[in-house]
Design a protein around this nucleic acid. Sequence first.
DNA 1: CCGAGCATGTAAGTCGTTACATGATTGG
DNA 2: CCAATCATGTAACGACTTACATGCTCGG
Lengths: 180, 180
Amino acid sequence: MLEYIILGTLNSKSLTGYDIRKCIEDGVGMFFKASFGSIYPLLNRLLEKEYVMCKCNDDNKRNKKIYVITDQGKEAFDNWLLSSENELGSMEMFMAKVFFCDKLPKEISCNKINSYKMRLNDYLEELIERKKKYDRLTNQQDFYYKLSTLYFGICKLQSIIHWCDIVASQQELSVLIEKY
Amino acid sequence: MLEYIILGTLNSKSLTGYDIRKCIEDGVGMFFKASFGSIYPLLNRLLEKEYVMCKCNDDNKRNKKIYVITDQGKEAFDNWLLSSENELGSMEMFMAKVFFCDKLPKEISCNKINSYKMRLNDYLEELIERKKKYDRLTNQQDFYYKLSTLYFGICKLQSIIHWCDIVASQQELSVLIEKY
DNA sequence: CCGAGCATGTAAGTCGTTACATGATTGG
DNA sequence: CCAATCATGTAACGACTTACATGCTCGG
């Protein structure tokens, strides 16, 4: 996943490894952490694959390497962005993709969100079934915390589904949160 | 983390590796996936550490190994459950711990949830600051999706904080979700 | 009797982390 | 001038996943 997040970051601006990290932290940092120990070796692998190029600014005495995405890199990134693989279990993966959707035609991105939402609905139903099994138990107080995590899952799913509705219909985002 | 989830699972019932997996899936499966390739080797390491013992039922022709938690294992599990390490970035870790809180004194578990909630509040403020920076931009429509992920983060945090309030005060859980 | 599910395990590979090592540059 | 931050990297390790390999058992 880091591979594509780096490509997505470089897609809008050429950066050093150091700056890539900061961009990730400020951007998808909510869902995804990246350390230098993963970024630098990966940048070298991306160089080998020719997904990125390296502009070594000689005017800098500092050994600064500015990475630039190539056409092949852009293609690989687009393929990732458009595919639906592995989004199922990983909300982080999905959100990371949404983060990079701004340049995509609205039809495609809305479609993506709606189809994700459908899969969430399926999962929600599953959890509701699980909850019903608990409801039948008489000694619920013995499982309060176990049950609370199930409620948490349901609660979180409902809020993501709501988020999908708002975003897919391009509504004002501020309706999503409590006021500040 | 899997180590402690296995111990927590065995804490209430002795099980085979196969059954442990099913219990994990039905229990903390919402936050955490475990494959056999991780469970079986880990069980052997737990045997070495003497956190678990193995009852090989000879009455079964099937090569079935039932794992039983030891006192040392219980101690290690309790230490994990009571510590607050690594909960920060990982909501999954926190929720997994809550899942195993039912046997804990209420004072301790509520305290745990409340202190987690405080850290969430700090993070929420950070995100609100980030949001304010976006609010100042005039070309917000160019960042709609980027912004949407930020709103998602805020939205999710607010809902977890609400969840913490309800659970820490032992309220009826059904207030958390939309009706079914 | 056969296929689904029970049951255990290994080997190779992936994808990361942590800790270390090094050195340049810049602002107070 | 010195501390903070910029900047790049490596080595060891950790915690998994995937795919494979094996064989039992039970219900239809």
